[in-house]
């Protein structure tokens, strides 16, 4: 037990929290960008998977990790456009369309992986490239803090920077205002001349962009290959993290960090020979518990507001 506590308090542990948080944070921001416009993007899981696959493949073909990243993100954006088209133009049920796209991503990546590499499990036979890690001058040399904050994958920094960008976009720009208006009350937004469809398209594309970055991180940073269904629920956990954080990017970030801490802890537990099957389920159990606590708190809040209202009415009488 001492061993565990010691390793949890080490700089290395906090470093790995930031690392494992990255894909979930991207997914959570993606969930937030669609949620503010009133769209539940359950396809995040599949969007990430798609990007992870095409990132690896295109980087192997072109020899450039950056072109791979671009291709991965483009594939995720394209798929989110498909989701938007089916939902907004063909009036497909949003959740079922999301499930279908997740299936599509899972099936098509395995199908193409086998076609391109002759292997159905992973792309280890394909020589692909990874995006670099970045040292931050100045911070790098500070003891402990430097070990935690410096030397991360370039997408890890982009993820945390995105938190501020997304927050700014949603709360300080005209586009963000429109997105919130559409999410709050589409009819009212329509009546003041906002094109609801266009705004929803935009927010789904932005959501796909985030998911694409998260997926690319998985196969071009977290590990250096693509594996069948490698997202492993991270897109769904991103949804849960966003649900915990409400409509703020900072909230989503804390939700994602909570999950990242749970996952990093589970790796630490593996080191003291607790079976990986057991530790792998911990983040999911943790998410369920967090969802319960959140839902309970929300109900209490609603109750309180109601009580206040009724007591006001009594005073009024």
């Amino acid at each position: 037990m001492n061993e565990v506590i010691k390793s949890i308090l080490s700089a290395q542990f906090f470093y790995s929290v930031l690392r494992v948080t990255t894909p979930v944070l991207f997914a959570a921001l993606g969930a937030l960008l669609s949620d503010v416009a009133g769209v539940i993007n359950i396809a995040l899981e599949g969007l990430m998977l798609m990007s992870a696959f095409w990132g690896v493949m295109v980087s192997a073909w072109t020899g450039s990790a950056w072109i791979g990243l671009l291709a991965g993100v483009a594939s995720a954006v394209l798929l989110s456009l498909a989701l938007a088209y089916f939902h907004l133009n063909l009036k497909t049920d949003l959740i079922l369309a999301g499930i279908a796209l997740n299936m599509f991503a899972s099936g098509s990546t395995v199908f193409l992986l086998y076609l391109f590499s002759g292997d159905k499990g992973s792309s280890s036979s394909v020589k692909s490239y990874v995006l670099p890690n970045v040292d931050i001058p100045g911070i790098k040399n500070i003891p402990i803090l430097g070990d935690i904050l410096s030397g991360h994958h370039v997408l890890t920094y982009i993820a945390f920077l995105s938190v501020f960008v997304v927050q700014y976009l949603i709360y300080k720009t005209p586009l963000g205002l429109r997105m919130r208006a559409v999410g709050e009350n589409p009819n009212a937004a329509q009546s003041v001349g906002i094109s609801v469809k266009r705004i929803k398209y935009t927010s789904l594309v932005l959501s796909g962009l985030m998911a694409g970055l998260g997926g690319a991180f998985l196969s071009m940073g977290y590990v250096s290959w693509f594996a069948r269904d490698m997202t492993n629920g991270r897109g769904f956990i991103g949804l849960a993290a966003q649900a915990l954080g409400g409509k703020s990017a900072y909230g989503s970030m804390w939700g994602a960090l909570l999950f990242g801490a749970a996952e990093a802890t589970s790796y630490t537990l593996q080191a003291i020979r607790i079976p990986s099957e057991f530790t792998n389920m911990l983040p999911f159990i943790f998410t369920i518990i967090a969802l319960i606590i959140y839902a309970r708190a929300k109900i209490m809040q609603i109750k309180k507001i109601r009580e206040k209202q009724t007591s006001h009415e009594e005073v009024g009488l």
Partner: peptide, 30 residues
């Protein structure tokens, strides 16, 4: 969770899929 606290059954049932998978594998493999 849905009936008592109005928590989205969509997300929680997805989470339960993963718990079933890993917990089940743990029970069988160990």
């Amino acid at each position: 969770m849905k009936a008592k606290w109005n928590a989205s059954e969509l997300v929680s049932s997805l989470m339960m899929n993963y718990v079933a998978f890993f917990f089940g594998l743990y029970l069988v493999n160990y």
